[in-house]
Write a protein that binds this DNA or RNA. Structure first.
Lengths: 195, 195
DNA sequence: TTTCGTTCTTGAACTAGATTAAGTTTTTTC
DNA sequence: GAAAAAACTTAATCTAGTTCAAGAACGAAA
């Protein structure tokens, strides 16, 4: 099985939600760029204004923040077919709070704020696509808050490994711990228990 | 100062984000209902399919879930000028996980799923409005996850009272505790410290 | 193969917050 | 305005998860 063309990955995903004529697809593709990232390459650094939205064709990126004690807090991962950006910065064109960085070799589609304005003007239906995407992302993040509040760290880890067994292999454990909201030491302890 | 007409409250809010002609406004208003809730009235009960999105004109509602031990987990509050629904249920037309209930006398605009389909068809620009709203709700909920992970319960309470001093008065403390992710007993302790 | 940096593990001491169980105050209802 | 219900407080005990500190394993580079 071959890796899909980045352009096809994007169009296929959009067409799961809205109809898009060939002309519209061409217009859209004329307004995006394709980019290949190595591990640890940055898409956004905290403090910079975020001018782009990113669609992950293949690979994995993380959104994170530096906190007080010199450590990092991972807010989110994005894998194949997810959009990721710092919407706060993207929307208001103010300095970003978050970093966005590849955690493995990753292919992305880059959709700039200015391109978005042009494309939405020409293809208003595309707003619908993003509305639906955001609706899902939003409700997923509310469910995540629910789980954070009502499950122990251990239960969250078990659930995560059950839902994304392959993904757990792809990122270092300390990143997983940060994403799940506890320390790497505690994750080690959880794993030790069931070996 | 008089309470704004519900219809005006909705139109004013929409017009902060997109242009809306008088004809479009009329068309939209023909497809929504207005509803007045008493304290504890339900907009949605877990298990039912959610067919509506709600705009809070004035008042306050909470979204919550029953959990294992007979207690309740509050996921979200919505006050004036916020939309609230169970997007998971609304989107897929599956049974809702959440309850949505008034916590004080509240006026809402009811925008049904079927009306939404009709209205989006006629006024595609409105998708833009919801896209922007959702973008903000989503990024706010990511920030919330960040704070849950990186601040103590006490710090979250202090921050919340600083940001929404009037709101703290409006809801019972046990609801605030649940929203902030700790027990009512712990909230009592925090408050005792600084009296 | 050695070296260096990064990631992972283990254990002991500690703390934020939960739980349980009364008791008290406030609000609602008849 | 009494009774019942709902909301809040206090204190003792308990635990999930942190912090600190050291060492072990792994991987990349040279």
């Amino acid at each position: 099985m071959t890796t899909p063309e980045p352009a096809d990955a994007l169009l296929n995903h959009i067409r799961k939600f809205i109809a898009l004529s060939d002309d519209e697809a061409t217009f859209l593709l004329d307004h995006v760029q394709f980019k290949t990232l190595r591990n640890k390459d940055f898409l956004l650094k905290a403090g910079d204004v975020c001018h782009e939205n990113f669609f992950i064709v293949q690979g994995c990126v993380r959104m994170y923040m530096h906190i007080d004690n010199g450590t990092e807090q991972i807010i989110q991962f994005a894998i194949d077919n997810w959009w990721m950006t710092d919407y706060m910065s993207f929307d208001h064109q103010k300095p970003a709070q978050f970093n966005i960085q590849a955690v493995e070799p990753t292919q992305v589609v880059v959709f700039s704020r200015s391109a978005q304005d042009v494309v939405f003007e020409k293809i208003p239906r595309l707003e619908r696509y993003f509305r639906i995407i955001l609706q899902r992302a939003y409700s997923a993040s509310l469910m995540r808050i629910h789980f954070i509040y009502n499950q122990t760290g251990e239960a969250r880890y078990q659930q995560f490994t059950r839902l994304f067994p392959d993904f757990v292999q792809r990122v270092p454990q300390y990143m997983l711990a940060s994403y799940l909201g506890f320390t790497p030491e505690f994750l080690s302890k959880i794993r030790a228990k069931k070996g």
